[in-house]
Design a protein around this nucleic acid. Sequence first.
DNA 1: ACGAGACTAACACAGCTGTGCTAAAAAGGA
DNA 2: TCCTTTTTAGCACAGCTGTGTTAGTCTCGT
Lengths: 199, 199
Amino acid sequence: MPKIVDHAVRREEIAEALWRVVRRDGIRAASVRTVAAEAGWSAGAVRYYFPDQDGLLSFAMDLVSRRVTERVSGIEPKGSAIAIALRYLEEALPLDAERRAEFDVWMAFMAQAQAETGAGSLHEHVDTVHDGLRRLCESLLNSLADDGALKNGLDLRREAERLHALIDGLALHAAIQPERSTATRIRQILRHHLETLIA
Amino acid sequence: MPKIVDHAVRREEIAEALWRVVRRDGIRAASVRTVAAEAGWSAGAVRYYFPDQDGLLSFAMDLVSRRVTERVSGIEPKGSAIAIALRYLEEALPLDAERRAEFDVWMAFMAQAQAETGAGSLHEHVDTVHDGLRRLCESLLNSLADDGALKNGLDLRREAERLHALIDGLALHAAIQPERSTATRIRQILRHHLETLIA
DNA sequence: ACGAGACTAACACAGCTGTGCTAAAAAGGA
DNA sequence: TCCTTTTTAGCACAGCTGTGTTAGTCTCGT
């Protein structure tokens, strides 16, 4: 019987090599050969797992979103409702080196996805992540509302969208100007925003 | 004497062709030859104006920011302070097809700039635009404060950063999900945010 | 008309691109 | 040991890449 290699693990390994290339040299540099070199294999090896590079790109993009959702679903919701909300929302922000790298890659994918706008394209991954974060914002605000923690008369739908936009904006700022938009600064602003919603 | 062609105009013409390529097929497709074809000239013609493609990319990115600042500085600040603020901030948002295209291109440049992080790189353009928008947010809030329109006890520095992040987040949403995040929806949220700051 | 200056097109070159294909190596149950 | 299956490395090919160079064309003040 043949050598057993966990197909899924190898594919993730290769996708992570792609991430490193994208982050170091941009998506323009992410060819089959450069990714193979980064992963430490021959180009043929990479192509065994990914017959064409579109599939590799799509898988690598999907892996980002899976990693994020893994991390988010690993959070234990304990503490006050507002503490829980902060904990969840922070996880979506690139506040440490690892997540900053992840976000850089995600940004490159998003930009590419804006071009390939057809069906079955990268843009579906964008929509998935985008909708996921929006729903997270909605459910966190609903939890706060159920606890009676929120101000009266808030339009929750609108507040969810506003919070969602703020999160994405803060993420962008943390990524492109990490010296100015430090982790503590970002947390301050996020906490402050939630406090304006609280009774 | 030779044929007189406005050098600057031609360069902008070529840069706009690059924009169209980036928007249609992504930054990976923006080669000297594809841009030349899009512009309707030979590759040699493009290279007459841009000796190397790094210069072309950098110019095209800079042109985006110049166009934005042109539009912003063309605004006449009339009406109430809050109307002025809304008018300015809306101009930074991709609420119509033209500005959506512009934003897509800008996003591709930002992603690429995250990779080339050295001095003299694309990232300087990102910082310029980013700082410009932040200062705009600051000055708009300051104007509102001078009019006595704002609530008491606001930390203007923090509010400026929060507003800035919200703007960037809304811009992203308008770009990647224009069906959901329509122009009117975006305006609503922005207006609502400003109203929460007003006494 | 002329010719200097501004502009254009075309080719050359080495190197990279994605993809198809083939031969070999590795691995472990029989 | 052998043999099937999985995995790997390598080559080939046509086409694209950035850049250098060169020969040509156009334009317009004199």
